[in-house]
Design a protein around this nucleic acid. Structure first.
Length: 871
RNA sequence: GCGGGCGUGGUGGAACCGGUAGACACACGGGACUUAAAAUCCCGAGGCCCUAGGCCGUGCGGGUUCGAGUCCCGCCGCCCGCACCA
């Protein structure tokens, strides 16, 4: 048979894919042993919340992780690649309220369904290690960790504010507050102060900040965001002397990062929840009304900072720390945060935009402390906020006039002056706050403590763990079901034996996800970790997930590693050695004539316009946005996999778009991906049919030009794909594979079946193609491998070694520029000296023509790169 | 508001350290095969100028450099996070 007469069968993913998954499962190919002598590699994708169905974002995330896992396995590593479920959280309780289904049943049903969906993706996961964070076995160990942290002094109780729905009598999450109202009741939200549990993450502020330097396999943007979140700053701490203050409030601590503006404040302001504000409100109905109004904004910093600036003049005056006779009016302002600094600020409108907006609104004076060099313009509606390193002219500065120094110098001098005179002192401040973990909800890990009237807060003895969630709960009334449960909280005090009450708060679900990666190393252990095993596997070599977790989840996990180290559960501080943040999956949006969103399958696209599949009504094509249920611009992975197979979905997710960027799902793209799968199968089938099965058993002594060219392409492809996968540049690997596929196709159509060198090159190219695609399209590759007579499973095969001699050419083509513009090409030996290259370039016909008799001023030769002739 | 990121043909993108801008793919157009269609294969293609050839071109405006998509300064647009969504 020849290539011309061979008619291949179409590749059928519906039969092939389940077959290979069964083989992998039968052979336990992806079950990981801890005692395997090979070097360990731990690859982990952020585990999913069991919402009910997997979405395309999961497909993308898990495909990327799987490529790394399969590739590393081929490179000889003992790979740990587990999967679990981030299973506690609000949606289960919402489902319970709406559909009368128990959160536990809802969650485990969702997990069962989603596990099935993940399995058909062909992921190389060790399912024997699976767990859900709502498994009693998991949260029991989390409670043990809590008790250890408590004992180690890493846990504290203090008050903090929550969004309170006065109609439903329940605490609201920030996302449940919409325009200042409760999402269900519509009531205006209030704020309440509750005593809550906190992890003392601020004990590690400096360490969490300093250690960012060592996270050299993390994206710079995430490192910057974490550093900014911790927000270490050096500034001036001083006191306001409050004239006519209520008793105990005569002196108020204040902190400012811009000490150099202390010559120009025009007001002082307190947070709405500052103790003095509360005190003054006792005798002022107007202030109480003002506070209530501010509190309707909610507790999120975003809402507070974007709200219109509001102020209330207390009528009190405070003295400037350097000159008590310089008096500033004391205001209450809604943009001052109680959580940062001391909840009191000194307002210098000329050099802070918020202060300026506030001053303009309430007609407060604006004093220019400094001006840009060469300008005498006074600030109008834009504050002048130069970088600390910028030189500016200080108009009037402690007796000096027109001093030109940098802001940093001015700050240093102010600090020194204040310390000398006892007006204030330099202090270091952090933006980072302790981590409040208390949630007034049912579906979370119970906090294992007991409140006793005589003994106070008593930890649950470890022997009494787990504190299990009761199953018999009702969601008929709002609020925390644990709190209204008839008897769950009634327990004797472990210390004195008297009647006491269980803590009814559960933990923030971020706690669950802050150590699951450690639990995967010993998922059934009766302690949180088995340190010897955990330390062998951790840190996670490559962690992959969405950018939306760049700060909180990752910072909390970093805290947990430190806390687990302090309590003897782990030996390392940093949980994730390599981090990759992938982009989202987007899709076009569609709206019907009545303005309702439409699912993509309801829409028929015709050129630039669209209409409804059934009704034929005109459909408006909207923007390309992140897939979301609310906008219906979602594509169900299961449908895609049923239509095209998992390999097509995987291939599409890796093609074209760089993994860190958003990818747009299009039908055309999916079809294109599928065509490639079919094409590879066709080519490999053809190779199997037209070349002898033993073609690779003996290597020909020499190769003709075409065979050599094909071999160069295949070897370079395997080499480059390996490099690209190491760098997680999957889209580049895909482009390389397309290239090699095209080369194989061309070689095959010219192949007459006679020459041994070409038979060898073609077989080799086909095997390399199947092999390089294995991490991405594992089912197809397994089928190709089998067809080509490969021994054993592709999934367990070692990555092929390439021949270095085939990777580089002896000659290369250099571009020649004249005055920076490309004018000619020069083909020359890779080994040629600079002088030889220069001589060859200057004697080039085109170059001579362009020089037109002019003598080059300069010739720049960058070896193996470029020649630039300057005339 | 604050913090972070991104922006290159009709589209997704490539260009590794500042060195040939547009690899590879999608969509499109033309051709081959076919009774026909699908599938497949081949060819074409950033824009402008009449061609040889040249000019312009990486969101916009400046700058540094022999040379800028890449570095610097200033804008514009879009996206993510903001501590109780996960």
């Amino acid at each position: 048979m020849t290539a011309a007469t061979f008619v291949p069968e179409r590749y059928n993913p519906q039969t092939n894919e389940p077959h290979w998954r069964e083989v992998w499962e039968r052979d336990g190919v992806f079950t990981t042993a801890d005692d395997d002598p090979r070097p360990k590699y731990y690859v982990l994708e952020m585990f999913p919340y069991p919402s009910g169905r997997i979405h395309m974002g999961h497909v993308r995330n898990y495909t990327m992780g799987d490529v790394v896992a399969r590739y590393k396995r081929a490179r000889g590593f003992n790979v740990l690649h587990p999967m679990g479920w981030d299973a506690f959280g609000m949606p289960a309780e919402n489902a319970a309220m709406q559909n009368k289904v128990h959160p536990k049943d809802w969650t485990y049903q969702n997990i069962d369904h989603m596990r099935g969906q993940l399995k058909i993706m062909g992921l190389s996961l060790d399912w024997t290690r699976e767990f859900a964070t709502c498994d009693v076995d998991y949260y029991a160990q989390q409670q043990a960790l809590f008790l250890d942290f408590l004992e180690a002094g890493l846990v504290t109780r203090k008050t903090s504010r929550v969004n309170w729905d006065p109609v439903d009598n329940t605490v609201l999450a920030n996302e449940q507050v919409i325009d200042g109202r409760g999402w269900r009741s519509g009531a205006l939200v209030e704020q309440r102060e509750l005593t809550q549990w906190f992890f003392k993450i601020t004990d590690f502020s400096d360490d969490l900040l300093d250690a960012i330097d060592g996270l050299d396999q993390w994206p710079d943007k995430v490192r910057t965001m974490q550093a900014n979140w911790i927000g270490k700053s050096r500034g001036l701490s001083f006191e306001f002397r409050v004239k006519g203050a209520p008793e105990g409030f005569e002196r108020l601590p204040v902190f400012t990062t811009r000490a150099d503006t202390m010559m120009g404040p025009t007001f002082a302001a307190l947070a709405v929840d500052h103790p003095l504000t509360t005190e003054l409100a006792k005798n002022s109905p107007a202030l109480r009304e003002f506070i209530a109004e501010c509190q309707r904004i909610g507790t999120s910093e975003e809402a507070i900072q974007t709200a219109e600036k509001l102020g209330f003049d207390t009528g009190l005056k405070v003295g400037h720390p350097a000159d008590d006779s310089f008096e500033l009016p004391l205001w209450i302002a809604n943009f001052v945060l109680m959580d940062y600094g001391t909840g009191a600020v000194i307002g210098c409108p000329a050099h802070d935009q918020r202060d300026l907006d506030f001053a303009r609104k309430y007609d407060l004076p604006v004093i220019d402390v400094f001006k840009p060099l060469g300008s005498d313009d006074a600030v109008e509606d834009t504050a002048f906020v130069p970088a600390k390193t910028e030189r500016v002219r200080y108009v009037c500065w402690h007796g000096e006039t027109d001093t030109e120094i940098t802001c940093q110098e001015a700050m240093d001098r102010t600090l020194a002056l204040y310390e000398e005179n006892g007006w204030g002192k330099g202090v270091t401040q952090y933006r980072l706050r302790d981590w409040g973990i208390s949630r007034q909800r049912y579906w979370g890990c119970p906090i294992p403590v007991i409140h006793c009237d005589s003994c106070g807060v008593v930890p649950v003895p470890k022997a009494d763990l787990p504190v299990q969630l009761p199953d018999d709960v009702s969601f008929d009334k709002p609020g925390n079901p644990l709190d209204h449960h008839p008897d769950w909280k009634q327990v004797p005090c472990p210390k004195c034996g008297e009647a006491a009450r269980r803590e009814t708060d559960t933990m923030d679900t971020f706690v669950d996800s802050s150590w699951y990666f450690a639990r995967f190393t010993a998922p059934r252990a009766e302690t949180p970790t088995v340190p010897a095993i955990a330390n062998d596997w951790l840190p996670v070599d490559q962690y992959i997930g969405g950018v939306e977790h760049a700060i909180l989840h990752l910072l909390y996990s970093r805290f947990f590693s430190r806390a687990m180290q302090a309590t003897g559960h782990l030996a390392m501080k940093e949980p994730f050695k390599g981090l990759f943040t992938q982009g989202m999956v987007t899709h076009e949006t569609y709206k019907g004539a009545d303005g309702r969103w439409l699912f993509p399958e309801e829409v028929l696209i015709e050129g630039d316009s669209a209409r409804h599949v059934e009704t034929g009504e005109a459909v408006a094509i909207g923007g390309i946005e992140s897939m979301s249920k609310s906008k219906k611009n979602v594509v169900d992975p299961t449908t895609i996999i049923e239509t095209y197979g998992a390999d097509t979905a995987r291939w599409f997710m890796l093609s074209d778009t760089p993994p860190e960027r958003d990818i747009e799902w299009t039908d055309a793209g999916a079809e294109g991906a599928h065509r490639h799968i079919q094409r590879v199968w066709r080519l490999v089938s053809e190779v199997a049919a037209v070349t002898p099965a033993d073609a690779l058993d003996s290597k020909p002594d020499s190769f003709g030009a075409e065979a050599l060219a094909l071999r160069k392409t295949s070897h370079r492809m395997v080499h480059a794909v390996a490099d690209d996968i190491e760098k997680l540049a999957f889209n580049r690997a895909v482009a390389r594979i397309y290239d090699a596929t095209n080369a194989l196709g061309k070689a095959l159509s010219a192949f007459d079946g006679q020459t041994a060198d070409m038979a060898y090159a073609v077989r080799e190219a086909a095997r390399f193609l199947a092999e390089a695609m294995q991490p991405m399209t594992p089912h197809l590759s397994e089928a190709c491998w089998s067809l080509l007579g490969g021994k054993g499973l592709m999934a367990t095969k070692a990555w092929s070694a390439v021949e270095d001699a085939l990777l580089e050419d002896d000659t290369l083509t250099l571009p020649i520029q004249i005055n920076g513009k490309k004018r000619a090409d020069l083909t020359i030996s890779r080994e040629a000296s600079k002088e030889a290259v220069e001589a060859a370039a200057l004697s080039d016909e085109t170059v001579i023509k362009f020089l037109d008799g002019n003598v080059p001023k300069r010739v720049i030769v960058v070896p193996n790169r470029i020649v630039n002739i300057v005339v």
